[in-house]
Design a protein around this nucleic acid. Structure first.
Lengths: 255, 255
DNA sequence: CAGTGGTCTAGACCACCCA
DNA sequence: GGGTGGTCTAGACCACTGC
């Protein structure tokens, strides 16, 4: 219960390990408050800063969240959003839903989107390469933020060649039923296959703010390229909060 | 250059933002040393603990690594390992290589594996569900650690029904050429399709140790189920270090 | 041996939440 | 107003590195 000075672990580690054990064992359930800093000082007999250090370790592990003026709580698991390879089905678009929208509603959650920016910009290097345009060429970008309930979960930037989105609702705030993929197919640009890459990292401060992330929450960076018959149609970069998403893929055994 | 007391950002944030800008702008390149704590104290005129706090923020973002007794360095990007849906090709197995092995060698990297445990254990709940056995039924598990060069990059546990691996080299330390999937196919258990789920989180202390992770490095938890004609053949859980892996999937537009 | 980061002590003030 | 966490000051000792 108290600090063991003969233990090779530092006092703050001992406190953190003790608290972590209480969390993983379930004695402290999600939503429960951790003992306050002062209680920890009383219980373990250390200086306040040492107790703080212990709590900080747990925050870095993503096990607990601090709420200003209230206390430190065991993190609750937010509802898990499944992002699967089946979400780009043409049938879904025919029903007037975008890929993301369909995925959320399938799970009985509320959906929302904010368009942050519609602009013509010079293509970032990897976008140019994937879209098959010259480095620095002008492309059209749709930046938006997806919400589940009222919490933002994704920042998504879609890039298009200018001729691809010419005279389409993709250039306007509301892309209409079925989303931008439906608009492309209306134009005769059939989506044939997709390629996705997932990278994992800690968020930048901007992303922490934009996604309302708690400290200790990593993010996934998803890059997708959508191919039509004649080449790439859309390149997407999306940053999604790690604690509320699962990526799912199914595929046949290749030869 | 110095701290601005009228700035709404706290002093440690200001220092962190300044250093981050030097890193992202390239004035501090990967491998370069950050100014030492004492230098920061001199430059910004704060107490040592404030400078430390700034450096800690950058560590949590995964931008820098501290080396005891030496200094704090801008993180180098480790070689990126691509884990793609094409890695389970039968052709690869015919060449005597396992999925992981093939992926690494394709990129000209050195490969290694340590078998940590071979055992019969009660199935964890999700494994039982995916393998289609009763909760708590006995299953066979292969726990191993994959190395690229001499750095561990993956912890992988494969679970099998007992009858699936009966009289196969899968129960022995060396599964032989082509890995365990080759052994299954020799037995007439053809792999037909795969399902993968990727979750993102911060590592546990055990994983930090096992994968030699630096603070601020998230991990991906990969769960895979390999299906044969008659049902699931293998369930795998793998924890991979986030800073050295990219997951890649390609798929056709579903109906 | 000097310099580095890792940890700790023992306080202080502030902003925030809730009763 | 009392409790909470967030941040800061101003030191201290230790273990480790590299010379």
């Amino acid at each position: 219960m108290a600090i063991d000075p003969t233990d090779p672990r530092s006092p703050s580690r001992q406190i953190a390990d003790e608290l972590r054990e209480e969390i993983t064992s379930g004695r402290l359930a999600p939503g429960d408050a951790l003992p306050s800093e002062k209680m920890l000082v009383g219980r373990f007999g250390t200086a306040p800063a040492t107790a703080r250090q212990a709590v900080r370790l747990l925050k870095e592990e993503g096990l607990v969240v601090a709420e200003r003026g209230k206390g430190v709580y065991v993190k609750r698991q937010p509802p898990t959003i499944r992002l699967g390879s089946h979400r780009f089905s043409r049938q879904t678009r025919a029903e007037g839903k975008s890929a993301f929208e369909a995925e959320i509603e399938r799970q009985g959650l509320e959906w929302g989107q904010e368009v942050l920016e519609l602009a013509e910009v010079p293509a970032p290097e990897w976008v140019a390469e994937w879209l098959g345009v010259d480095a620095g060429a002008t492309v059209f970008v749709r930046r938006r933020r997806n919400l589940v309930g009222d919490t933002p979960t994704q920042l998504a930037d879609s890039y298009y060649r200018l001729d691809t989105v010419e005279d389409t609702a993709i250039r306007t705030p509301d892309t209409g039923p079925g989303g931008s993929y439906a608009r492309l197919e209306e134009k005769g640009l059939t989506l044939e296959r997709f390629r996705e890459e997932i990278r994992i990292r800690m968020p930048t401060p901007t992303e922490v703010q934009g996604l309302r992330l708690t400290p200790g929450t990593p993010v996934a960076e998803l890059r997708r390229i959508a191919f039509g018959a004649s080449g790439p149609l859309e390149v997407l970069e999306s940053v999604v909060s790690g604690d509320s998403h699962v990526f799912c893929y199914e595929f046949a055994a290749p030869e």
